[in-house]
Simulated scan of single mutants.
Amino acid sequence: MPTDDELYYLAELFKIFGDQTRIKILYTLLDGEMCVQDIADSIGMSQSSISHQLRVLKQSQLVKFRRDGRTIYYMLADQHVCTIMNQGLEHIQE
């Protein structure tokens, strides 16, 4: 059995997946790194809304970023995020 702290952080992680906009952002980033405007255009939302959700995703270590001049590119933090997304979708499709 995981420790209470581990269970707490796991529950917090799953809360992040409870928002449809964040899920859309993560699925968009499955295709590779993108800047905020490209993510916003892809999802059909404002740049401000996307930036707010990216902040939450960064704090949860689900996405990371790199700066190229004035542009910031976001990508999935690691392969685990892709695995979580794919397994979740597989589970609901059964």
Rank of each mutant, 00 (worst) to 15 (best):
Q53K: 15
M75C: 07
L54V: 09
E33I: 05
Q20L: 05
L62D: 03
L7W: 01
S48L: 11
L54W: 08
V63T: 15
A11T: 02
E12W: 04
R70N: 14
K58D: 07
P2H: 10
C82I: 03
G88M: 13
K24M: 11
M45G: 07
I16W: 02
L7G: 02
Q79C: 05
T21I: 15
S60C: 08
E94Q: 15
C35Q: 08
C82A: 07
H52Y: 15
L7T: 00
L54C: 06
L62H: 05
K15S: 04
E6R: 05
I39V: 14
D41L: 14
G18C: 00
C82G: 01
D41Y: 14
S42K: 14
M75P: 00
F17P: 00
M1R: 12
Y73K: 13
Q79F: 13
E6N: 08
I50P: 01
V63M: 09
K24T: 03
Q93E: 12
H91E: 01
L89V: 15
Q93F: 13
G44R: 12
C35R: 12
T3Q: 09
Q87R: 14
S51M: 12
G69F: 13
P2C: 04
R70P: 02
Q61L: 01
T3L: 09
R22W: 12
F17L: 13
Q59V: 04
D68V: 08
Y74D: 05
H91Q: 04
Q20W: 03
C82V: 04
H80G: 07
R67P: 00
S42M: 10
Q47S: 07
E6D: 10
G32S: 06
L62F: 07
L29Y: 11
L89M: 13
S49V: 09
E33D: 09
D19R: 12
Q93Y: 12
Y74I: 12
I25M: 06
Q37H: 06
P2T: 06
F14V: 06
M75A: 03
E12K: 08
M45I: 13
C35F: 11
K15Y: 03
R70V: 13
H52D: 05
Q61G: 00
L57P: 04
R66S: 14
F14Q: 03
D41W: 12
D38H: 09
M75E: 09
Q59G: 12
C82Y: 05
Y73G: 07
L54T: 06
L26D: 02
M85E: 04
D78G: 14
E6M: 11
S48R: 15
D38A: 11
I43C: 01
Q93G: 07
I39C: 07
I84K: 01
I43Q: 02
G32A: 08
Q59C: 04
P2Q: 08
V36G: 02
A77C: 03
E94P: 02
D19G: 04
Y74G: 02
Q53D: 14
K15T: 04
M34R: 11
H91D: 01
L89N: 09
E94V: 15
L13D: 03
T83L: 14
A11P: 01
L89F: 09
D68M: 06
I72R: 01
I43D: 01
L26S: 03
Q93A: 13
V63R: 11
Q61R: 05
L76E: 05
L10C: 09
G69A: 12
M34D: 00
H91A: 05
S48E: 10
E12R: 08
M34F: 10
D41P: 06
Q61D: 02
N86P: 00
D78F: 10
R66Q: 13
Q79E: 15
R22G: 10
G88Y: 06
